[in-house]
Amino acid sequence: MNGSSDEKSKNEEIQNLQNQPGKLTIYWKRLKRQPFAIGGGVIFLFFLLMAIIGPLVVPYNYQAQDIANRLKPPSPAHFYGTDQYGRDVFSRIIVGSRGIFLLGGSGTLLAVVIGATLGLLSGYYGGLSDEVLMRLFDVLLSIPPILLALVLLVTIGPSKPGLILVVALLYLPIEARVMRSMVLSLKTKEFVEAARIRGEKKLYIWFREILPNTLGSMLVEGSMRFSYAIFLVASLGFLGLGVQPPSPDWGLQINEARGWFSIAPWLLIFPAGTISLLIIAANLMTDGLRHVFYPIGGEI
């Protein structure tokens, strides 16, 4: 009949529509115009990959000592030279990225998840609890981060879970604030009011109406926070409150290399350079993401 064929064509139409270029295509197009962001992203992903498979591909075991070849400068056999125990610096840096990603990454993730949740609830309900929470965060933010981290780590003793918790605690107030400010403006938007009028449950309003609109910003904010976390973890390692030896932690390596700087500068230069490289890469990537999600005037 006429009706059914009509319906058929309608369904086909819908099928076709689903194949239309969507948001992702647009994002990809914008990303292609950001060579620095792509470069940053590639470096970042390389380190991420190394964090996962590093120990399997490195030329030497990161703990293997070779006293005969100690303090050798960079050479084809040891790209970054060897340290005071004759360990391969290159292998140690590659393997060390795992710790950085694990500690910084999970700490940031924890901060984002808890912070976003608190920010969402605080912003959506407002009132006294919002006020109390925000002032509490103000107190946390008023203490210099390294100082706060030192106090906490000295109290609970340096350990991996402890480090993760410290990173999370330090960054949680910032994430919560960012989320809260977005929720404050989103909850008065007409599409949220329309949802309230048709009787949507709170969970639907939070997860389907409000959260999707914050994802882009939170992604940008989270990845920026992650580059700070790398720095923080390395700093704490340097101060001796991070991961303990013989871990190949970058900060720890720099700390150990201090004493040898005059005779084996590569011990210091390579880990320090790697930290800078990763942070710059992460920042470039974040900046690119911002351009992709929130193009400024003139960009489409």
Binding site: E190, E193, A194, I197, E209
Partner: peptide, 14 residues
């Protein structure tokens, strides 16, 4: 209800 501002009436992600 139908609102004044069509730009914010619809969730941009739906």
């Amino acid at each position: 209800m139908v609102f004044q501002n069509p730009e914010t009436s619809l969730n941009p992600y739906h």
